[in-house]
Design a binder for these strands. Structure first.
Lengths: 392, 392
DNA sequence: GCAATTAGTTTAGATTGTAAACTAATTACA
DNA sequence: TGTAATTAGTTTACAATCTAAACTAATTGC
């Protein structure tokens, strides 16, 4: 919401109204100038002037006329989502996922590259080469390549510096600037859970508080407050896996005892299952057959899941919580048990106003979220200053 | 940050710059027009014009000249904190605390009224009569009485409606509008912990995330994000007392087992102490003599306190946590044990960047916070539209 | 008492928004 | 077929607010 500086000048007024109109156009499939006039409160004259700028800047297209019962037909306007392409990356423990999207975050091409050498030098090289190749396969567009978003399996601070990514053994790496230097486009790094949250939040953008829980071998939350990723003072917010939920509990890899993720992570569930002789493969398993002992394990697991969720609900009073966990999604009895457990234990308004859902996001959602961040930053830049309008 | 509507007009531009200059004047003891010009980036002409408006509106005073080595002396400007008075109330279980403050939140008069009949009718009557009396004792000021803030011992929703205040047995009471109707001034109700947080946050206003923990018979958190109270989707955020920290724990009044406040509230500590034969009176006790058994009790208590704090730190990555608990403040060994415990258990950057402090707030801090809210809303109104400038 | 310096005001001009009048395009119907 | 009614979008005259630069005001040093 706050613009370049705190003070307001004419230019800021224009930028704010440009941004307002562009956002309206983006969030509605098609819209006419009169509708923009009605929904923004700006006069028809101002709307016409700003739309003319946006069309000149190739950010908006005229589609031809729409329908009314009587009178002159409106000209349908739409966002020129093909005016640029963005890249989204997810760095995993054994591979790098790349997607190229349009400015709406729609995937144009994707590719997953397996790598084993996670030195920054090699990662940078692989990304540069792969992106160049992928982009060359896309049709040329007016603004070409507008930026890269990068989902990192670790802790990223508010300046985009990767503080600690244990699996790939990075410490205090200013990856954003490195990658930006060799690609020539802006790069935005953030934690995987935060990028996932961005992709999820597209489904409920109006929420004051929404949480996306990413459950794998650990648990992390992407927290969205007033439509923006909440990162805390330094960028380390959302480390919910290490909430203590059990006194004298199991030793966690973080050194504490009784962390939530020692009980509620996929790793924890898989260990409990395999300890009781149920075999679970990591990926692409069918749902686990619900025998009585398995049901008991799921029931206990749902209880632990509930404990952390109750903390989250009490603390944030979120309108939505999305759970992103392939294992839970595959065994949907867990979410039913979880809902029962929450209903039994939590008797507050906060629970009734919180919709708990399994993620509907596609496989490469974190990369899509990353690309959306890159596209959004581009759109902000375009709103805040005009590109190259040679004439006039 | 966002003003009346989303679109920007000339008036909005003016209001934004008015507000900017007024805030600068408020946060600096004294400031001249040139200094405002330098710190806001607005031209001297604009600063002069806006300052002239503010002076005409009695919100700013000229104090006479300041010092420079050479040249014309600047005219010192200051916020006219005496231009209006605000009231802050805290409704307790057996009394109502009233303070009257200037627009800086400085207490002019305060009074505590004991009452037993907590019917809304009686409470409204008592408040009306007492405020009238207190205000009559203050010198008349230009804007006279600008508003009331009200700290409530219970859950208040985002619209200011008191959903549930168990001690005084209120349910879904639109107290703000009722009190506003009989006093003729705007009323803002919020939870006690949130009002406390406002009073505390004055000490660190630049923090992206700060938490004020109010520990009494229960535990609640006032959460400040980007300088504003964070209330969640409906207004119920901050119910940290009911985070589960113990599996199969003690039954809580909320119906759950193992809530944080069953272990870390003052009530819990006092019960443990009295169960071991240590007598503790509720108020104005001297520090408890630290015998070996007492030390053990404090140590265990600090451990439980730490469990919830670790959740808060992991989740919010706050720059500050303030603990407001008379019992802990009186027995400062607890905070030392707590710090040790946190150092031993939590090995993250989030801990090192979080300053944990005991509240330094005065006894009636929640009422002061409430009055600050009322004064702040008045200042916003004054920034956003000009009062009665008959001439011109 | 005059040059140098700093504070604050005045004035002319630019940008952007508004309101209201205008043009453009289309349907209904005589 | 042509004209009134209707709706979409543009043009024009004007107002608000900011800026830059010239100006006035007040003070110190010599």
């Amino acid at each position: 919401m706050d613009l370049l500086s705190k003070r307001f000048l004419h230019t800021h007024m224009r930028f704010a109204n440009r941004r307002l109109i562009l956002e309206k156009i983006i969030e509605s499939e098609e819209i006419s100038r009169v509708e923009l006039h009605a929904s923004t409160g700006l006069t028809k004259a101002t709307v016409s002037a700003i739309v003319a700028e946006l069309i000149e800047d190739k950010l908006v297209l005229e589609l031809g006329t729409g329908n009314t019962l009587r009178g002159r037909k409106p000209i349908r306007l739409k966002f020129a989502e093909h005016a640029g392409i963005a890249a989204g990356l997810t760095i995993e423990t054994d591979e790098i996922e790349c997607v190229i999207t349009d400015l709406y975050g729609k995937v144009l091409i994707s590719e997953t590259v397996e790598i084993s050498d996670f030195s920054t030098k090699n990662v940078l090289k692989v990304i540069r080469v792969r992106l160049k190749e992928l982009i060359s396969q896309c049709a040329p567009v007016h603004y070409s390549f507008v930026g890269i978003g990068c989902a990192i399996p670790g802790i990223v601070d508010n300046k985009g510096i990767i503080i600690h990514a244990p699996y790939i053994e990075w410490q205090k790496v200013d990856f954003s600037n490195m990658l930006s230097a060799i690609t020539g486009v802006p790069v935005f790094c953030d934690n995987v859970a935060n990028m996932l949250a961005v992709a999820e939040i597209m489904h409920h953008p109006e929420e004051k508080a929404a949480i996306c829980l990413r459950i794998r071998s650990g648990i992390r939350a992407g927290i969205i407050i007033n439509g923006e990723i909440f990162t805390g003072g330094d960028g380390f917010a959302g480390e919910v896996g290490h909430m203590p939920v059990e006194a004298n509990g199991v030793l966690c890899r973080c050194g504490q005892y009784g962390c939530w993720e020692t009980r509620a992570s996929e790793l924890a569930l898989m260990k409990t299952l395999s300890d009781s002789g149920v075999t679970v493969h990591k990926k692409n398993d069918p749902p686990i057959a619900v025998t009585e002992p398995v049901r008991k394990i799921f029931y206990d697991y749902a209880g632990w899941l509930a404990s952390g969720l109750i903390s989250l609900i009490n603390m944030f009073n979120p309108g939505h919580i999305t759970i992103n966990s392939p294992l839970i999604s595959r065994n949907d009895i867990i979410i039913r048990l979880l809902n029962e457990e929450l209903q039994n234990r939590l008797h507050t308004q906060s629970l009734s106003s919180c919709r708990l859902e399994l993620s509907k996001a596609p496989k490469n959602a974190s990369s899509i979220g990353a690309a959306i961040i890159a596209a959004d930053k581009f759109i902000s830049r375009m709103s805040l200053s005009r590109h190259n309008h040679k004439d006039a």
